[in-house]
Computed example of a mutant assay.
Amino acid sequence: MQPSPTIRTLGILGAGRLGTVLARLAVTAGYRVLVARSGDPAPIARAVASIGATAVLPEDAAEADAVVLALPLGRHTDLPAERLRGRLVLDAMNYWWGADGIRPDLDDPHTSTSETVQRLLSGSRVVKAFNHMGYHELEDEARPPGAEGRKAIAIAGDDPRDLAAVTEIVDALGFDPVVAGPLSSGIMLEPGAEAFGADVPAAELRAMLEAFPSSQRGIIVARARHR
């Protein structure tokens, strides 16, 4: 597994379990990794250094070649939007009512949550990635390209060049990338969809995505979007 030739540094906003697992995978893949929590990085500095990454302020992590959002979705309005302007942003966030509270604006079938993030980060290029597989599985299932039983990560984005860049990152971190479609297709990877929680090879993940329109969640989304 080798890092993308165009992306050498990954910033990770979020130092919880998901952010830490992604940081560890990225370091193993050869990326320089900057991890940020909200505020002073000192409390996480030792733990982050132990996996080969560097703890920094959020605004410094936002200066990386690509930035992963691994925060509770309800905190997306706290993101350093100006610092992220022009950056490739990987949205790994999900709406959880237990963490985010009851938020109809984050559970709206008219739009994907990544589109909501994109509207906030209007100067950034957002791609949905790394949200549908649990952090335990991400840590345990990473495999080199071509390995038997390699699992897949779905991504969604509007720009083919950004999708190509994120494809390289997903592959480098140990998974087969599957393009779900434009950013709006990220709704197929959210809680309530069959692909959410998927820890499966690429062919099975593609089948889940193809079946989404006829699923219960897919029918709800279609009705909402065609009113």
Rank of each mutant, 00 (worst) to 15 (best):
H136A: 15
V89S: 08
L10H: 02
L79T: 10
I220N: 13
A62Y: 00
L88H: 06
G157E: 00
D60E: 14
A92K: 03
A224R: 09
A195F: 01
A26I: 07
R227G: 15
Y95S: 00
Y31A: 01
P41L: 07
L173G: 05
G19N: 07
A15T: 06
D159G: 07
A47T: 15
L205S: 06
F175R: 03
L69V: 08
L205E: 05
S38R: 15
I153L: 15
A224D: 11
F196P: 02
A165V: 08
S122H: 15
F196E: 02
E168S: 09
G14M: 01
A180S: 14
P144Y: 11
S112K: 06
Q216F: 12
R125K: 13
T116C: 12
G30R: 05
R206Q: 13
L22Y: 00
P144H: 11
P213L: 08
A195M: 03
T54S: 12
M93V: 07
A156P: 06
A180R: 04
R125H: 14
A36L: 06
D78T: 14
V200K: 09
Y95A: 00
A202E: 11
E190Q: 03
I155D: 01
A49W: 11
I153M: 13
P3T: 06
S215M: 10
G134Q: 10
G52E: 03
R143V: 03
L209H: 00
D158R: 13
I169C: 00
S4L: 04
L57M: 14
D78R: 14
T9F: 07
V166R: 01
P191K: 04
G123A: 07
R17Y: 15
V126F: 04
R75D: 13
A29E: 03
A23E: 01
G11R: 01
A147R: 05
L106C: 02
M93W: 02
F175H: 06
A47Y: 10
V221P: 01
R150C: 09
A61R: 02
I153V: 15
S185L: 08
V126M: 05
P72M: 05
V89D: 04
A45G: 10
V68N: 00
A99I: 14
I219E: 14
G52P: 02
I153S: 08
I155V: 13
R125I: 07
G157S: 05
H76S: 07
G86K: 12
H136M: 14
P80G: 12
S184Y: 05
D162W: 03
R150L: 11
L88A: 07
E168D: 12
A70N: 08
A156T: 07
L90Y: 05
Y95H: 02
H76E: 07
T111E: 13
A203C: 09
A198Q: 04
D162H: 10
L183T: 03
G174A: 11
A92Y: 03
V68I: 15
A129I: 08
G134V: 04
G74K: 10
P177Q: 09
L205K: 05
L13F: 08
V126K: 00
L10E: 01
P58C: 13
V178Y: 01
L57Y: 14
R87W: 12
I51D: 06
L138G: 01
